[in-house]
Amino acid sequence: MNKFRLTRWLISLPPILFLLIFFAAPSLIMVITSFRFPGEYGGLAPLVAPETDTMAGDSSLYGLTLEAYRFFFSDILYAEIFLKSFAVAATSTLICLIMAYPVAMLIAQSAKKYRNLMILLVVLPFASNFLIRIYAWMIILGPESAFSHFINNMLQFFGFEPVMMLFSSFAVLVGTVYVHLPFMILPLYTNLEKHDPVLLDAAQDLGANRWQRFWRVTWPQSLPGVFSGSALVFIPVLGMFAIPDILGGTGDILIGNLIKDQFLGTRDWPFGSALSIMLMLVVLCVTGLFTLLARPRAPK
């Protein structure tokens, strides 16, 4: 038993220590920042020397304030952006899941000697640069591209108005799905790969058709993979800003863009931190929910 406890700490301590030092400690700085007054010239001036007099009239305790949070709740605008971002993240996650499942399943069912190659083919595009991939999509979706002409000819044939695909929410969705697809395929594959084909054979013997076999046997067993893949897509998408910046139209603003604006354009670090902290709180609640859902069920 003693040995067991020793192993337990040998395995748990290194990641805990690393994350406590290099994640929790720096984050604490930002949590505190969100309760400080913003500096007149931006940056973190308030952390070093609180310039409370610049915001005279506001009540404060030891130079701390809820001002940034109050500002957030003073306007429905910010809540709207949160909702919008969640909608975009949920849509991309769903599309990723639908696209990733057949790939992961095919790889898991293929002969062992081909699996490596097929996984490699999924990851390979991502060894190129992020920006170059997004710019490649700009070329594909651009109004003079062959693809764009094809789509618009089709639309016109059926009597619809031609559309501009680049600089639109559609382009943002394409870019987002493209960039995050491997983060769905890989967890799904690692889950599906361990499934025992015996169960499927048994189901077949019991007269289940292909569809039933999928929904009754494969799908429930793959749920941990589905949830972890969804988390790895959903969460990063919430905080992204580069894709809407490059591919998006005039209305594509997400929380990520808003937060970036606070740290750069507006130089309002307290508000930027407050926004981030609220985002993280919401995300942690959602993942908490996911974890509950992902509890392994007794296989039937």
């Binding site: 913003p38 500096g39 007149e40 010239y41 931006g42 610049t54 500002f71 306007d75 605008l77 910010y78 709207e80 952006i81 919008k84 005039t250 209305g251 603003i253 863009n257 808003l258 604006d261 606070q262 354009g265 507006t266 130089r267 309002d268 508000f271």
Partner: peptide, 21 residues
């Protein structure tokens, strides 16, 4: 010219509104 914090925050709010509407 640089603008002060209150003005920056107001501008940022207007900007967010522009983007969202």
């Amino acid at each position: 010219q640089d603008i002060n914090h209150t003005q920056r925050r107001l501008l940022s709010r207007i900007w967010t509104e522009i983007k969202l509407r």
